[in-house]
Design a protein around this nucleic acid. Structure first.
Lengths: 348, 348
DNA sequence: AAGGTATGCTTAAACGATTAAGCAAACTTT
DNA sequence: AAAGTTTGCTTAATCGTTTAAGCATACCTT
């Protein structure tokens, strides 16, 4: 009963099983599957057919041990719990699995030490390369491993990022065209590269035509307590007609705070956000925001990373700088203005 | 110049390097590191010290090949983009990395076929076990692999889930105590196990004392278009005093829709949610909601999964049912009522 | 002190894939 | 037809770890 006599409990088919079944060598099977070595198309077809019949699945462990590559990329996030993460993770996972790579996640919960640890854990686990999404001002210590960064301007290594500055410019010009002359920008962390880029773009599009004041929520909350009101209502009552948040999270806060006080959005005050988080379209009024093209960002990052990985495996040691056929080391992907119902012309 | 003469580019230290450096056998080093075989404490200490000095990091590939275990768990999500995902992923990643496991992610974008594919991709990648978080009514085909399910009641295999029914009961009794007698429940998909559990609990706590009507947003939107108003305002004007959403997403929608029409929350209408999404505390009024204990859910799921994996490696073939020392196959973790500012006594 | 049992180490054989090297046989070339 | 080239396959080594088996010592028993 406990023998494998009838029920073929067949553990897992490997190359040699196929080879034995066909009376050929394992090397022939390997060549047939990879299409690499020298093998006749006839035999290759026979082998592939048999492999398919027998349900052959290559062992990643065996392959990894021999080739030194695992086929896995590490995705390092400063804080998984950030609401932008789902978009990023999904786009990256998709891009990677299209190229035959898996995604191993590493979270550092916003802590820099933990981030370094997360990175080494991923490397130790055999990740062939890392995609790192740092958050507000994190600096990554130099890593001797293929890396692609997302949204980390001026970091060494391949970096791809949404064009936050231009996004700011777009929102700024949009608000100017709507006639807003007295604007409050709501940001989170003052040391976030991303938010500063967005702010810079906005200011550059607005400074000659409007008064711009900035509120940093994080700073306010350390002073007034978490979840405190942002004090937008008196501002709205004294001439501010637009609240441009640097993230949808803050835009949401602004919308509810104003609405609660009976200030109509967008009738008496315009509110805009950034990121197009999943619920932005469902709130009332639906949020006007700037959307990143995550698919493209992810594709570029993954492609750049895989290029690095495959170069590394050909050439020994550190990759020489600039052979000419690489992706540019920093690439900016345009953002898209999504106009919905939370924005309108400035009231007279 | 291109030799490794001066710069010790030292690829990577392995067991034999350490063995050679100390004049012992690789097996001794292996035993010292794992603490398994027979080895003197003296030599073990010496070896560990040397290994540390040399910066030894075990090769997962080598180990995986030999032991047949990769030390990686697959996290299968029906839709990564769901806003609840960050909480889940973070909790799982933490629980797993505490136990020395990595997390490989697989996304099925809500598509059942894609889910099956994602699952086999993860298995082919060598995941030792899977943690599956299905979404509204997904059925998982039987998998011959260790599995732990989250939030999928009545699925074969180890399942852990928040106690959604009891969460519903808690919210229901809370609303009853506040004097609400005319309540609208807002749900998403009518075929979601999770939402039906929550709804069932609420009804069981309310049915004898209040009129309860249910709005299914998904159904409404296929009829009226995505992002359509839910029509809550006339309801509020005709006696409904509480809107209990089965997810914070819908609660948010309710709050903004009511506020926009000048209906004060919670003065004239109470709104409650489920899940305690990250922004729930930051909107105005801060949302009253039910919170799952994700850390505990993740811990239980990961523990149960690892138990299965380690049993499997001892006993050959499918695990015999019920040896007595296993976790219960279905476990419910209590939810916690978080009272904030969006709920209050029913107006007279 | 002879026998048995622990103890501490080594040797060697896996795990499953890849790939350089080797070797026939079948083609070219002159 | 002799020499060279290409083609199609096999052999064997390798990646780094684990672990069963082997073999001396050293220790305990009576």
């Amino acid at each position: 009963m406990q023998r494998e006599a009838m029920n073929k409990v067949q553990a897992r088919v490997n190359l040699s099983d196929i080879a034995r079944a066909l009376g050929v060598s394992a090397a022939a099977v390997s060549n047939a599957m990879s299409g690499k070595g020298r093998i006749s198309e006839d035999l290759a077809a026979t082998i592939r057919k048999k492999a398919d019949e027998m349900g052959y699945v290559p062992s990643v462990a065996g392959r990894a041990l021999r080739t030194g590559r695992s086929g896995v990329l590490g995705l390092v996030l400063a804080d998984i719990a950030h609401p932008l993460f789902p978009q990023i993770a999904q786009a990256i996972e998709n891009a990677a699995s299209d190229k035959g790579y898996g995604i191993l996640i590493g979270d550092s919960r916003g802590d820099i030490n933990a981030q370094t640890k997360a990175i080494s854990r991923l490397i130790e686990r055999g990740a062939d390369g890392l995609i790192i999404v740092p958050r507000h001002g994190t600096r990554i210590a130099h890593i001797n491993h293929p890396v692609a960064m997302i949204d980390a301007p001026s970091t060494p290594g391949n970096t791809v990022s949404a064009d936050h500055w231009d996004g700011g410019v777009q929102i700024g010009s949009y608000l100017r065209k709507l006639g807003h002359r007295n604007i409050i920008v709501i940001g989170g962390y003052q040391d976030s590269n991303v938010q500063n880029d967005r702010l810079g773009g906005m200011k550059s599009a607005l400074s000659d035509s409007a008064r711009v004041e900035v509120i940093w929520v994080e700073a306010l909350e350390t002073q007034m307590g978490s979840g405190c009101p942002l004090g937008l209502v008196p501002k709205a009552q004294h001439g501010v007609t637009a609240f441009a948040a640097l993230s949808d999270l803050h835009a949401l806060r602004a919308v509810t705070e104003l609405q609660r006080a009976g200030i109509d959005v967008p009738g008496r005050a315009t509110v805009t956000g950034f990121d197009d988080l999943i619920w932005s379209i469902n709130i009332s009024p639906a949020l006007t925001t700037m959307r990143m093209n995550m698919e493209e960002i992810a594709n570029i990052a993954v492609r750049a990373l895989i290029t690095q990985i495959e170069q590394n495996s050909h050439a020994e040691g550190p990759v020489p700088g600039g052979t000419g056929d690489e992706e540019p080391s920093t690439k900016r992907v345009p953002m898209e203005l999504v106009i919905r119902d939370s924005s309108g012309p400035a009231p007279p």
